[in-house]
């Protein structure tokens, strides 16, 4: 059993994403990565580095203007080859996803209880009293009183909405949870709570978590492994400590030098791209 739990959950190899009308523009260039159960892998990068596109392509949610090449293996099946129907049975069931903006990703005219329940009905066929019980237990797992099931999204705070999103994404006990900047829109104290909650859930459910962020502080708090992306390519991968304390790639070093620290010991440096010229 343990052997199975320790094996990799998702394997991306040589993923390349290009616009259909400009196949030479490599938005994501030859990206390969592996996600394992019980581990949090952070993808860090600036806007336009391709971190969100990589995550969306796992779920088959890329815009129709884009095309992906390469292989995405999830539990022995090749996700890029699946049709929409087959993908739908995986999305929300075996792979959960949380988005950045908790305000826009919930439907304002449905109660949060109903929205959490939809996932369970669609994938597990739960109905009636059984469904109600499961929704209430999910709300409690994410730290929201179960009476809140009857509330509408606008009656909840930003942090509570993100907790509802998390409840929805873990409803079917997914093997993989993708979180795309889940705390960027939140206040720092709320962010700290949500990070802690995600970390607890990951450990308890032995999920693989793919966590996308641009904030190295968040990486330091939540990651096991780190992938640094720059202009569509992976420039560095490694364990959290290796990447944060002994970065090898000049881009990682330059990016870390830009991050202000809370102690104020560090001298901020503007980012240095001179290594690009040497590389080219």
């Amino acid at each position: 059993m343990n052997d199975i739990l320790n094996t990799s959950i998702l394997n991306i190899s040589n993923l390349t994403i290009t616009p259909k009308n400009a196949p030479n523009r490599l938005l994501v260039n030859n990206v390969s990565l592996t996600l394992s159960a019980g581990k949090t892998t952070c993808i860090v990068g600036e806007s336009g580095s391709g971190k969100s596109l990589t995550a969306l392509s796992i779920m088959g949610l890329l815009s129709s203007q884009l095309q992906a090449q390469g292989s995405i293996q999830f539990q022995g099946s090749e996700l890029t080859k699946l049709d929409n129907k087959a993908l739908q049975s995986i999305r929300g069931a075996k792979i959960g996803m949380i988005f950045q903006e908790p305000m826009t990703s919930l439907n304002p005219v449905l109660t949060v209880g109903y929205q959490i329940g939809e996932t369970l009905t669609a994938h597990l066929g739960l109905k009636g009293a059984g469904l109600k019980l499961r929704v209430e237990s999910l709300l409690q797992q994410v730290g929201i009183p179960f009476e809140r099931a009857n509330s509408y999204p606008d009656e909840l705070s930003g942090g509570q909405r993100q907790r509802v999103m998390i409840a929805m994404s873990i409803a079917c006990e997914p093997l993989l949870l993708i979180a795309d900047e889940p705390t960027t829109a939140l206040d720092v104290t709320v962010q700290a709570q949500i990070l802690q909650l995600l970390d607890e859930l990951k450990t308890r459910m032995n999920m693989a978590m793919l966590f996308i962020t641009h904030d190295f502080g968040v990486v330091a708090d939540i990651a096991d492994d780190v992938i640094v992306m720059f202009r569509g390519e992976i420039v560095e991968t490694g364990s959290k400590n290796a990447v944060l304390t002994k970065p090898k790639h000049p881009y990682t070093k330059a990016l870390l030098a830009c991050v202000p620290d809370a102690e104020g010991k560090k001298q901020l440096k503007p980012i240095d791209y001179s290594w690009l010229e040497n590389a080219a």
Binding site: F216, D221, A262
Partner: peptide, 13 residues
């Protein structure tokens, strides 16, 4: 104190 403790990456640093 609460705000300062919530700064991401502080514990690790």
């Amino acid at each position: 104190q609460q705000l300062l403790n919530a700064i991401p990456g502080r514990k690790a640093a």
